[in-house]
């Protein structure tokens, strides 16, 4: 396959995944920010959202203060923000167009349809109910794209590259949510958090669509170290580091088998997965949750670079 084709597929999936992640971050933030003032605390949730989306620099160059309007505008619709939902779909559609024949009709229609719809919405200021509906729609596009990929694509290298892009992005998003909120999960916060903490913990779970999963897995009330366990080490939880890396290793191995050759990308992914498999959440906390997450983000970036170097350049 042409490297450019693989590169387009890889980024196409990354951008769809990123758009969906942004929608979930905005949703969770909106919910936290709308709590009664008594829970308001000292943190500005909109600031956290900007930090989690990883676009603080661009945001503050344009806006003095992070609040509902400025953050929604910047993360969802701003053309100057290369990772706004609007631009994610724009880039995804551009990539899809140049690899049109590598996609199934269902995938193409999902992306193209989303792009057309979004162009219609782009100039409107959405708030409240409308915004909620919009964010739900974005998540739905992610689901539909993912679903049509799963249901209609041949299981060949095209599939592998688009999954690898999606999984790297997914791992990165989960890691960044934890990176911004890790302090809420630290033991000094006390075993039973105050009301605010409770809502914060809920918000973390919500940002990765894991509120229900949490209760299925742990069968007890929300505890910060269990949240960390679920999002980092539990391979049943599809957005956890462990689950993403289980899948990443599988797809990279498939590529290696198909091409009869393996390289740095396979080695990096395997070593990262091994570390996650062998880790225990108590050790993670003992050695420092924040360091663990920061290291993971760096490793994940390294894997992205290795995939690029090995296949996409």
């Amino acid at each position: 396959m042409l490297s450019r084709t693989a590169d387009n597929l890889f980024w196409l999936s990354r951008y769809i995944e990123r758009a969906e992640a942004l929608a979930r971050i905005l949703e969770a933030t909106q919910r936290l920010a709308s709590l009664p003032a008594a829970y308001g605390g000292k943190t500005n949730e909109w600031e956290s959202a900007v930090a989690t989306a990883g676009c603080a620099e661009g945001f503050y160059a344009k806006h003095g203060e992070a609040d509902h309007d400025s953050v929604v505008a910047y993360l969802a619709f701003d053309r100057d923000n290369p990772s706004s939902i609007l631009n994610c779909f724009e880039t995804a559609r551009h990539n899809a167009r140049s690899v049109r024949t590598a996609l199934t009709i269902e995938m193409w229609e999902t992306i193209n349809g989303a792009w057309i719809e979004l162009r219609r919405l782009a100039d409107r200021r959405l708030a409240g109910e409308e915004l909620t509906r919009f964010l739900g729609w974005v998540k739905e596009i992610g689901l539909r794209f993912d679903g049509s990929a799963t249901r209609t694509m041949l299981r060949n290298d095209i599939y592998d590259f688009s999954r690898i892009g999606m999984l790297l992005e997914r791992a990165d998003n989960t890691a960044r949510i934890l990176d911004v909120k890790y302090h809420l999960l630290l033991p000094e916060q006390g075993e039973v958090g105050g009301g605010l903490d409770y809502y914060q913990w809920q918000a973390i779970l919500r940002a990765v669509s894991a509120v229900t999963s949490y209760h299925w897995v742990y069968r007890e009330s929300v505890k910060p170290w269990l949240i960390a366990d679920l999002l980092i080490l539990n391979d049943q939880m599809p957005r956890s580091f462990a689950a993403c890396y289980g899948e990443l290793v599988r797809h990279l191995d498939q590529l290696a088998r198909a091409y009869g050759r393996q390289g740095p990308a396979q080695r990096l992914a395997r070593s990262c997965r091994a570390r996650l498999e062998n880790a225990d959440i108590r050790d993670v906390f003992q050695r420092g949750l924040h360091e663990f997450i920061t290291d993971f983000i760096a490793d994940n970036n390294r894997l992205g670079a290795a995939v690029h170097e090995q296949y996409l350049a």
Binding site: L2, S3, R4, L255, Y259, A313
Partner: peptide
């Protein structure tokens, strides 16, 4: 060296 190649994933 006077030969054309395409960049592929392989």
């Amino acid at each position: 060296d006077e030969v054309v190649y395409m960049r592929t994933t392989e």
